[in-house]
Amino acid sequence: MFPFCFEWVWDAGHYLFFGGMWYTISILGLGMTFCLLKTIVDTLNGKGAGHGDDHH
């Protein structure tokens, strides 16, 4: 999984496989980070407050 694992080889198989893996993890991680940060900002700005059926 990491270059310091002893079976690691710098070859096409590892580039493709782990390249794909880290790329996907990055997309998911960045996507969720964006959502969380935007939600914090929105919430601090008072967005969504007063929402819900009890307040209608």
Partner: peptide, 19 residues
């Protein structure tokens, strides 16, 4: 229904739908 009343959750749900 109950979770949606919490602004943070409401916004999170909305933002996640966005992306």
């Amino acid at each position: 229904r109950q979770l949606d009343k919490v602004p943070f959750f409401h916004n999170l749900s909305h933002n996640m739908h966005g992306v």
